[in-house]
Simulated assay, not measured.
Amino acid sequence: MASLAWLLIPLFAAIGAAIWGSWAARDRTQGDISELAGYARFREAMAHADQARVKADAHSSPAAHSASDGV
């Protein structure tokens, strides 16, 4: 009977490994899609902010830059 108990240990280990393997291999693309969409919105916002900064720098005069620099 003791040998039968020792055979149950690998059986439980195999069942646990199968459960963990199925959990680890689950489809997680739903979360990735929303994160990638958020990153795309972030990139668009940063590009928009950069374009606005370049546009503002282009409209300002060089004298305004030297006065604001404290030179």
Score class of each variant (00 low, 15 high):
A2T: 10
A2P: 06
A2V: 15
S3G: 08
S3R: 15
A5H: 09
W6C: 00
L7V: 12
L8Q: 02
L8F: 00
I9T: 02
I9M: 02
I9A: 00
I9D: 00
P10R: 02
F12C: 04
F12R: 01
A14K: 01
A14G: 01
I15Q: 00
I15P: 05
A17K: 05
A17L: 13
I19K: 04
W20F: 04
W20M: 11
W20D: 01
W20A: 13
S22E: 04
S22F: 03
W23D: 02
W23Q: 02
W23N: 08
A25N: 12
A25S: 15
R26E: 00
R26H: 02
R26I: 05
R26G: 04
D27Q: 13
D27V: 07
R28T: 06
R28A: 03
R28K: 06
Q30C: 00
G31K: 05
G31H: 03
G31F: 03
D32T: 09
D32V: 15
D32G: 08
I33G: 00
I33C: 02
S34P: 01
S34F: 11
S34C: 01
S34T: 14
E35Q: 10
E35G: 12
L36F: 06
L36V: 09
A37Y: 10
A37K: 11
G38C: 07
G38S: 12
G38W: 02
Y39D: 11
Y39K: 14
A40T: 11
A40Y: 03
A40K: 08
R41C: 04
F42I: 01
E44P: 03
E44T: 02
E44I: 15
A45T: 03
A45D: 08
A45G: 04
A45I: 05
A45Q: 04
A45E: 13
M46T: 05
M46Y: 12
M46N: 07
A47R: 10
A47N: 14
A47P: 09
A47W: 10
H48L: 14
H48Q: 12
H48Y: 12
H48M: 09
H48I: 10
A49F: 11
A49K: 07
A49L: 07
D50W: 15
D50C: 08
Q51V: 13
A52F: 06
A52C: 05
V54C: 07
V54W: 13
K55P: 06
K55G: 07
A56M: 08
A56L: 10
D57Y: 06
D57C: 03
A58E: 09
A58W: 11
A58H: 13
S60D: 08
S61E: 14
S61R: 12
S61F: 14
P62E: 03
P62R: 08
P62C: 05
P62D: 10
A63W: 14
A64P: 03
H65R: 07
H65D: 03
H65P: 04
H65T: 10
S66I: 15
S66P: 09
S66C: 05
A67P: 09
A67K: 06
A67L: 14
A67R: 06
A67W: 09
A67T: 13
S68T: 10
S68I: 15
S68A: 15
D69E: 11
D69S: 12
G70V: 04
V71Y: 09
V71K: 10
V71G: 11
V71N: 06
